[in-house]
Design a protein around this nucleic acid. Structure first.
Lengths: 341, 341
DNA sequence: TTGAAAGCGCTACCAT
DNA sequence: ATGGTAGCGCTTTCAA
């Protein structure tokens, strides 16, 4: 058996309620008494039971996080969230949600069963979230059950909830503006058309609007074949495009993600297209390795860590009872010019 | 108020104990009765309370994970663990443990207070873990409290516990053997000497022994200045080494990590040293982007996902009561030759 | 096959 | 300033 408050109480010659108060630093307990209780507790190796506390107080000090996969992106975002949460004595329960292999008792339900105090959710990438979809219904049900949650980096149009996202629209604008200012006209936008989320859509839209506002025609390079990863898709697509006559005259490529830019770089290198002389390139993301590519990759850096941190802060506010209407926070991005353009 | 078993019981005209049994698919309950209970439960929107169950049954179905930081490495390892755990209805509580900012009530203690059923632990990098260190004491205390735990990728020499690690020794051997077979003789090993863990030590040792067994003298390139990250350290160090007369004649570099290889590549490029013609290069890790570097980076691939998965399996066994003496599992690595050597 | 009752370890209310 | 006590929602004997 593990030691309980009862054991401590008996040994210290006080009541369990006194032990409880002492443990929580309640000012009503005399310093002297508390000291004695604390001593006894250490002697007995007492460890408080947060399950019991949670059951009794209706608060678990645990947050559930549901993200798609274990990418560096999410790792960093969750690290940002965790650093904020741990400052407030909350823990993070992780739940990767690969689209395939969905179980009967779904992940969110399992998390709420553990009585998490709130959820951080990155909705799955999907264009086809019809209004009666399973996913949608689940988010709505969360709202009804009054479980606080915040969308991470993307959101579901039909669900009115807090969301923290990188300003993807502005990110694409910044990059496009820069390329145009550099006198580029034929600027291609390389992106993955399948399973697009709001983030990807915003980027594409930022590119499109910026191009059009300058009277330049957008040039969309949507990847055609899904590959093993974004790098591979971008690599293949770029190779194909370089051989098309339609692509002649393209002097700059804006890639929807850092990973894609890496694939582009490889294709360009293999075709002996010099960067930046013959082709300028900008990525999106701000991955640390970008600086170390050949040439160093220019990119729009996204404040990923801050994304998680802000979402956590917003969630904590909700948990503390904030009832303001749902917020949608957009985090500013930063264009970092390196050797690739 | 949330709906409880009591509510369901009343509405279904049965006792709570019956509801409990029905919910857990106990064969003693008649199919018909269970069906009715389940219907009522859905009607009422009943959600089981895992805190209560945990308190009562002494099992939380939650595993704590303590790792150093949010690197892609750990993200992938934890994804591997999570996929195994979720198959067994366990959840993972995440806890990054940056060496700095250690709190009074330390992370492991907080996790055990939540009554996790076990722990996955990546001990901090440190050569100076004297036998009476705080960390060491904590692991010993875990053993005493009979909290099952498994070390991830590294371990503490003084603590006899389960550990799953990549075979770092063999990894370095493979790479070194290959370079020697390619007729390289002056092969430098670039590594970070500070805060070394068992993984890093094993790699260095694998390199050393392989070199010596072939009668070739090891050439250690320990980084001198700590930089912002491994890439930067490696970059700087390589630059300096290339200018030293002592380094003349070096024809191959084995980098302790993929990140370091990236830094090396940059330094070589800037010094116009051609890879692999003038300098061969191999990294350690198997990061996905390695293939996309210029030239594509040869590397020893480490089964990181499997690392997490195996650790999770081992931990589950312990939780189920396995009392065999502590195991130390080593996962095989694979040398992948690409353009850099 | 189902019901009754005890209790997991804690908090919070009401006494004293 | 401290003690007594009633649950939080569930599982788990033991009875019926």
């Amino acid at each position: 058996m593990t030691t309980t408050m009862k054991d401590v109480a008996r040994r210290a010659g006080v009541d369990v309620s006194t032990v409880s108060l002492a443990m929580n630093n309640d000012p009503r307990i005399r310093m002297e008494t508390r000291a004695r209780i604390l001593t006894v507790a250490t002697e007995l190796g007492y460890r408080k039971n947060l399950l019991a506390r949670g059951l009794r107080s209706g608060k678990s000090f645990t947050i559930g996080a549901v993200v798609g996969s274990a990418t560096p992106f999410w790792a960093e975002a969750l690290a940002g969230a965790q650093s904020v949460l741990s400052d407030h004595d909350y823990h993070l329960i992780l739940d990767y949600a690969p689209d395939a292999g969905r179980r009967e008792e779904t992940q969110i339900e399992a998390l709420t069963a553990k009585r998490v105090d709130g959820l951080l959710i990155a909705p799955p990438d999907s264009e086809a979230l019809d209004s009666d979809s399973e996913t949608l219904r689940r988010y709505r049900s969360l709202k009804e059950q009054k479980v606080p949650f915040v969308f991470l980096d993307r959101f579901i149009p039909g669900v009115d909830a807090d969301a923290v996202a990188v300003d993807d629209f502005a990110a694409a604008c910044q990059a496009t503006e820069y390329l145009i200012a550099q006198k580029h006209r034929r600027i291609a936008y390389l992106y993955p058309p399948h399973r697009m989320n709001t983030a990807q859509r915003d980027r594409r839209e930022g590119y499109r609007q910026t191009m059009e506002s300058h009277g330049v025609e957008p040039l969309f390079w949507a990847t055609t074949k899904p590959g093993n990863d974004r790098r591979e898709e971008a690599w293949e697509e770029t190779r194909n495009r370089l051989n098309e006559s339609e692509s002649s005259g393209v002097t700059a490529i804006l890639a929807a993600t850092d990973s894609m830019a890496v694939g582009v770089l490889r294709a360009l290198h293999e075709s002996s297209v010099r960067v930046p002389e013959q082709m300028a390139l900008i990525g999106c993301g701000g991955a640390a390795f970008a600086e170390y590519l050949q040439p160093p990759l220019s990119a729009v850096a996204l404040p990923i860590r801050e994304l998680g941190a802000q979402a956590a802060r917003l969630l904590l506010l909700r948990i503390e009872g904030d009832v303001a209407p749902p917020k949608r926070v957009l985090l500013p991005t930063q264009l970092i010019i390196r050797g690739s353009c």
